[in-house]
Design a protein around this nucleic acid. Sequence first.
DNA 1: TTCTAAATTAGAAACTATTCCTAATTCGGT
DNA 2: ACCGAATTAGGAATAGTTTCTAATTTAGAA
Lengths: 139, 139
Amino acid sequence: MEKYKQILVDRGIKPTYQRIKILEYLDKNHSHPTVDMIYGALYKKVPTLSKTTVYNTLDIFREYDLVDVLTITESEIRYEYVLQPHHHFFCKRCGKILDLDVNCVYQEAMCVEGHKIEAIHGYFKGICSECLLKNENVS
Amino acid sequence: MEKYKQILVDRGIKPTYQRIKILEYLDKNHSHPTVDMIYGALYKKVPTLSKTTVYNTLDIFREYDLVDVLTITESEIRYEYVLQPHHHFFCKRCGKILDLDVNCVYQEAMCVEGHKIEAIHGYFKGICSECLLKNENVS
DNA sequence: TTCTAAATTAGAAACTATTCCTAATTCGGT
DNA sequence: ACCGAATTAGGAATAGTTTCTAATTTAGAA
Ligand SMILES: [Mn+2]
Ligand SMILES: [Mn+2]
Ligand SMILES: [Zn+2]
Ligand SMILES: [Zn+2]
């Protein structure tokens, strides 16, 4: 609790109970959750929580660069507590989103073809190693 | 018309008028349009066109690998007639989506960290060169 | 501690991209 | 031209997100 409160205070974000809990959830869950996943996990502990508050909080976290936003799937936005920049893998079979440790030449680029770069998203899509193994068992 | 009809026939897709027109639009417009943009441009020429048909058609085109799908923005899906694989730039100021000619080391990779790769999407986000120029004039 | 103004939250309503459903139309082969 | 199958149109439904507003909470002043 105190750790997350401190992070918020340091950034100049008013450390409300809801914000602390959401930040804690993001820090402890690297599943790149959707708003629904965050809400679903927290409303048991914070029964009055509303989905709007989750949206509001994530918007603030974004504004203060506490979270990154992924548009790797087609129907919903996914969030993660911001760490090192990294790329992502999406398994078309089981839906998992995994961090990739690929070294991207452009990660540090300020500029590409005359355009100013502020963020780079590398989305790899296919079948994850786990699902590939399950497949072997089947055949 | 004939050119697009032929493309559809070659793939085994029944070449209806709607499908031909949508394919023609995609081939002549490299703006990575949304469903609404496609519908808005075509319903003048094809007054009975329905948005559902645009969705249906794009789903078929996808299935037959005639179009690629971009999830570069947060609120809608964008489509493009499939060419060489390439990465994209999204301008946060004017909303344009541009093709990038960056050479990605992983473009040919079959496998990354044990996961089978079927597609790679590189989304670069920032301010485009045109918007940067406009900025200079302002200051 | 009590008071007050400003910020935050909750919940419902609105919005919008997409999907679903179904009847009417069109298509291709006979 | 006829028929069964595929496609289309358009309205209804769905779901993620945003907007609105009143109630609550916060933090600082008195
Ligand atoms: Mn990640
Ligand atoms: Mn493109
Ligand atoms: Zn998987
Ligand atoms: Zn621009």
